[in-house]
């Protein structure tokens, strides 16, 4: 664990607000979220699906469809606001400075080209001066780097010949080809089984510590956060409800939503007949977003004030903050938030 605030800020997202237009009305997917990723650190964005964690990141990368709109906010990457870059500038930033990996790698690999030609193409798209031969050997090295046993054979294969874990490794290799400063990982292991997931997580951890790149990791699984991330932002209904270092969150969770999510971590050593923990009720419907706290309908500690206003941000420790009325009113949380 690095010290909090030790290194320089690489990506600083402030007040990002994104909405979608649908037939049912405007969906307010992201409501003014702010977080920052420092150089070399792994930042986790955690929340249930539909909570807006992916949308926020896709908005930064300019990957949203036409029905969506960034209403407000900025995203400074090394001092430049990505949200206000021209298309060409953004395209050169993507892939070179910021790379992204996704949940379903096979749909991001072109089925009619071999792995090798796609990798060589990627390298040469960013730097024409590299010869094909050099690009080939670079690609092979990178495949070896991501734990692929025989890069030469894999280079000649087509995406459909690869298993899920293997395609994800190839995706990671492609993402790292241009030595990005920031790797955005959007649930890269959700579609994989547990053994492959463990391998991919180990791989990402090793790659990160070797190359010193920063990582923004989107997931709904707190177990992965424990393994991988230095700091965490918990997102619910398009709002960040708690933010802090991984230890702060795991051993001092202040928001009831974070506590509920932590209880959902699959544990191998829990006694069998203990009732399965669950968060009651459905996740927030972002069309009819309730006034007040987004979690209040499912919150076991809800009070009257929760339906009136969104709770203010309370600083609990340096770099640890949560938005909850319980904290503002100084009430003791019934749960102690300990998890271990």
């Amino acid at each position: 664990m690095r010290e909090d605030g030790g290194s320089e800020i690489l990506l600083d997202v402030m007040g990002l607000d994104v909405s979608f237009q649908t037939r049912r009305g405007d969906v307010r997917a992201v409501n003014g979220i702010s977080y920052c990723v420092r150089r070399g650190e792994a930042h986790g964005l955690v929340g249930e699906s539909g909570g807006g964690k992916s949308v926020g990141v896709h908005a930064i990368m300019g990957l949203l469809g036409t029905s969506s709109r960034v209403n407000a906010g900025s995203a400074l990457f090394e001092g430049r606001d990505i949200l206000r870059l021209k298309k060409g500038e953004l395209a050169s930033l993507r892939g070179r400075e910021i790379s992204m990996i996704f949940q379903n790698p096979s749909s991001y690999l072109d089925p009619v080209f071999t792995i090798g030609s796609q990798m060589i193409e990627t390298i040469r798209a960013h730097d024409r001066s590299i010869s094909k031969g050099a690009a080939r050997s670079l690609s092979e090295d990178m495949l070896w780097e991501v734990g692929i046993r025989d890069p030469e054979r894999r280079m000649r294969q087509y995406p459909f010949e690869l298993s899920g874990g293997m395609s994800q490794r190839v995706m990671i290799a492609i993402a790292l080809l241009c030595k990005p400063k920031l790797l955005i990982a959007d649930e890269p292991t959700t579609a994989l089984d547990v053994t492959t997931q463990a391998q991919i997580i180990r791989l990402l951890k090793n790659l990160q510590s070797r190359s010193g790149m920063a990582m923004l990791y989107i997931t709904h699984n707190f177990g992965i956060v424990a393994e991988l991330c230095d700091r965490v932002s918990v997102i619910c209904g398009g709002y960040i409800v708690e933010q802090g270092s991984t230890d702060d969150i795991f051993y001092g969770a202040a928001h009831p939503y974070t506590q509920a999510l932590l209880k959902l971590i699959p544990r191998i050593d829990s006694p069998k007949n203990e009732p399965a923990p669950s968060i009651g009720g459905p996740p927030v419907d972002s069309v009819s977003l309730p006034k007040g706290c987004v979690f209040r309908k499912r919150c076991p500690f809800r009070m009257d004030i929760c339906s009136r206003d969104f709770p203010p941000r309370i600083n609990l420790a340096p770099y640890h903050s949560a938005n909850c009325w319980l904290l503002e009113l100084g009430k003791e949380l019934p749960g102690d938030g300990q998890n271990g």
């Binding site: 053994t195 424990a226 191998i268």
Partner: peptide, 20 residues
């Protein structure tokens, strides 16, 4: 045993303790 080890650690302390 490999399957059991593959399950993500439930908290950061366990994650650090696990010799990788």
């Amino acid at each position: 045993r490999a399957l059991i080890e593959a399950i993500p650690a439930p908290d950061p302390k366990t994650a650090r303790e696990r010799s990788r």
